[in-house]
Design a protein around this nucleic acid. Structure first.
Lengths: 367, 367
DNA sequence: CAAGGGACTGAATCCAGGC
DNA sequence: GGCCTGGATTCAGTCCCTT
C-alpha cells in the first residue's frame, strides 16, 4: 500500500478484514483484547438470588474450539505483518483462551518477553464455592523475534513502582465507578471495559511518545483514550456502531498531558493481611502443634487448615485463632495473634512473632 | 494390569515409560512439574529419548518447539489414562512452556478448573533491566471433563485464608533456607525445588486423606513429603539416581499427621441430610404449628407429612419448606431451614436449630 | 454534614445425590 | 443418563438514601 497510515481514528468493520487493508510494518505496538470464548452455561444466581450479568454477547460465541483457534491464528498473523520489526504485541485473556493464544503466538514465531498477571483487587467471588476465586487475567507481551530491539521503559516502570523493579504481577482494581461508561438507561455500554490504569502501564512501559498503537478489538476505546493522554498515536478497529460512538465521545474529552509525573499515582501501601493459615502452610508451625495462652490456662491444637480446636469449661471450640481465643475465655472478642503462644525453652512466645516472620519474607514484594 | 498399585514409593525410569506400566483410572490427583528447558542450552529429549540439539536458527527452533509439544502431548495422554474419572491434574510452568501445556491439555479434552498464579515473594531480579521482573509461575488445574465431580475442599481453603475465599493468586516464598536440599559440597541438589507451602495448598485443596497422588517428575520429592505429612498416598517417577536418593531420605524423615480431625475441615455439604419431616415426626414441631420468616412478613402452617401450607399475594402454596419459602417470596429458590422461623419468647428462631437437634441425637445414636 | 445501612455489580466455563 | 429436588453459596467497592 502506498497510502500513508491515518492515525487517531476508528476504522469500522471486521478486525481481520480491516487489518488486511493496512500497510505492513507500520505499527509500533499492538494491544489486543480479543473475545475470550467463555462458553458460559445457564444463568448463575448469587446467594441473594440476584442474577449475574454474564458475557453472552454474540461476538463471544464461536462454533468450536477449532474455530476459535483459527480465528486466533488469523488475526495474529495479520498483527505480525502490521508490526514493525522492533514492535511488540500485548494480548490479554483469561484461562479460557490465553493458552490457545500463547501457543499460536509461539507457533507464529513471536518471542515472549513476559507474561504479566493482572491481579484484580476486587474480583467477582465464586458464588457456589466450587473453585478458587478467579481473581486474575493474563497478558502476554511478545516481540516479533528473539533478536528484536524492542522498547521497554525500564526507569519509568521502576519509578511507577516506588523505586523497585516493576514485577510481572500488577495489582489493579476493576473498571467501575465513574470510569465505567454507562448508557442513558444506566446499563454498562460494554461488558468488559478494561481499566485505564492497566493501559497506562502497558503503553507507558512499551512505547515512546508519538508511537503508533493499534487496538484491533477497540470496544469503547480505553486504548485510544490512554494513548491520547500519553501523547501516542492510536488506531482502533471495531465492528459495533454503539461501541464506536461511545469511544469517539470518550476520546474527544481526553486532554493529552505532557508531564508524566502527573500519572504516577502513589500506591496504597497497607500492611499485608497475614492469615494464620499461612503460618501453618509455610511450615513455621506444624499441624498438631499445641498453643497456650501466656498464663497457660488454656491450650489449643493447630489444624491443617489453620484453624484451632480447644476444649474449655464452655465446651468444645473450633475456628480461627481469634474465635477460639474468645471462646475459651468466654470473651466477646480476642486477638489471637497476641493471645496464643508457643512453648519455647526461654518461655512462652506469642504467635505474632511468626506473623512478623512471614511479613518480613513478604516485604520484598511490595504491590 | 492386574497388579495392585503400590504406593508411597519412587519408580525409577523414564516418566512416560513408567506411566505406561501403571493401571488406568488408578490415580486421584497428579501434580506435574515438567521440564521446560526448551532453548536454554539444556538438553531436550524427544518422546523416543533421542536428543534435540539446542541451536537457535529458525529451522531448529521449530524442530525443538515441535519436539516439546510432542513430549508434552505424550505424557499428558498417559496422565489422562491414569487419572480416575473424577481425578484432577495440576501442572506448573513458566511462560516458556505453560501455554503449550495449556493448549495440549485442552486439545486432549481436559477441562480447566482454574489457572493459579504463584506470586513469588522473593523472585530473582531482572539484572539487565530489559523486562519486567519475572515474579510468578503459573499452575493449571484441570478435571478430565466438564461433568467430572472433582474434589475441592472449599472450606479448608477458606479457613486457610482466614475466612475469605481462596483466590487464584497465591503469594508464597521461593524454596530456600533450611528447606532447600543441599549436597555435601553445599550446592543445591535440584535446580528447581518447589516450596512445600505450594504443595501444601495444592494437596489440601484438591485431595482427601488416603487419596493417591502421582508426581511424574518427582525430582527431590516435595510432592511425596507433603503428601505423607497430610496423610495422602503418593507415587513418584524419576530418572535421576541422585534425586531419588535425596527424595527417599527426605521423605523418611516426615512425620505424618495421623489425627483425621486435624486434617479434615467439615463442610455443611458433607453433613447428613435431614428431611424436615423428621423434625415433625420426632415431635420437635407439632403438626399445625405456625412458622414465619425473620421479618414476619409471611406465615406458613406445618402439616403432618412435613410439608407447609401458606398464602401470599402470589396465591396459595403447598410443598416443602424450600418450595413454599421460594413461592411466598416469588424467588427462584430458597433455603427453608434458614428462611422459616418459630416464634419463641426471646424472638424468632430459625428452624435450622431443630435440624441441629436431630443431628445431635442421631450422632449420639451412632456412637 | 457525618455516619451508617442497603442495593447493586464485576470476562463466571459456579451443585449433588437419589430415583 | 435424565429428571427432580433439597438446600448451599459472596468480596470489594460505589452509589444512594436515611438517620
Amino acid at each position: 500500500m502506498t497510502d500513508p497510515l491515518r492515525t487517531n481514528r476508528i476504522y469500522q468493520g471486521d478486525s481481520i478484514e480491516v487489518m488486511r487493508s493496512l500497510p505492513s510494518a507500520s505499527i509500533d505496538m499492538i494491544f489486543a483484547d480479543p473475545p475470550y470464548n467463555m462458553m458460559l452455561g445457564g444463568e448463575l444466581l448469587r446467594p441473594d438470588n440476584s442474577r449475574v450479568d454474564g458475557v453472552d454477547d454474540e461476538w463471544d460465541r464461536f462454533e468450536s474450539q477449532r474455530a476459535y483457534a483459527e480465528f486466533t491464528r488469523s488475526w495474529l498473523r495479520e498483527a505480525r505483518r502490521l508490526l514493525k520489526d522492533n514492535g511488540t504485541i500485548w494480548v490479554i485473556g483469561s484461562y479460557h483462551n490465553i493458552y490457545r493464544v500463547g501457543a499460536e503466538l509461539q507457533d507464529l514465531g513471536f518471542w515472549t518477553l513476559n507474561d504479566v498477571v493482572w491481579r484484580k483487587a476486587n474480583p467477582m467471588p465464586n458464588f457456589k464455592g466450587t473453585r478458587f476465586t478467579n481473581a486474575h487475567e493474563t497478558l502476554l507481551w511478545c516481540a516479533k523475534s528473539a533478536e528484536a530491539r524492542y522498547t521497554f521503559n525500564y526507569e519509568a516502570m521502576k519509578s511507577l513502582n516506588e523505586g523497585l523493579q516493576m514485577r510481572s504481577d500488577w495489582t489493579l482494581p476493576l473498571c467501575n465507578g465513574k470510569e465505567r461508561l454507562k448508557a442513558e438507561d444506566g446499563k454498562k455500554v460494554h461488558p468488559t471495559q478494561k481499566p485505564e490504569s492497566l493501559l497506562y502501564r502497558v503503553i507507558l512501559s512499551s512505547t515512546h511518545p508519538g508511537d503508533i498503537i493499534l487496538d484491533p478489538f477497540f470496544g469503547t476505546g480505553t486504548t485510544g483514550a490512554v494513548a491520547k493522554l500519553l501523547g501516542r498515536q492510536w488506531i482502533g478497529l471495531e465492528r459495533d456502531e454503539a461501541y464506536i460512538a461511545a469511544a469517539r465521545q470518550r476520546i474527544a474529552q481526553v486532554e493529552p498531558i505532557k508531564d508524566l509525573r502527573l500519572l504516577i499515582t502513589p500506591s496504597k501501601k497497607s500492611e499485608p493481611r497475614i492469615p494464620f493459615g499461612t503460618v501453618v502452610e509455610r511450615g513455621l508451625l506444624a499441624p498438631g502443634s499445641l498453643l497456650c495462652d501466656s498464663q497457660r490456662r488454656w491450650t489449643a491444637k493447630v489444624r491443617a487448615d489453620g484453624t484451632l480446636v480447644a476444649t474449655s469449661s464452655h465446651g468444645d471450640h473450633r475456628g480461627s485463632i481469634h474465635q477460639v481465643g474468645a471462646a475459651v475465655q468466654g470473651a466477646p472478642a480476642c486477638n489471637g495473634w497476641t493471645f496464643w503462644h508457643i512453648d519455647r525453652p526461654g518461655g512462652a512466645v506469642p504467635i505474632d512473632v511468626l506473623r512478623q516472620q512471614v511479613r518480613a519474607e513478604l516485604e520484598a514484594c511490595a504491590l
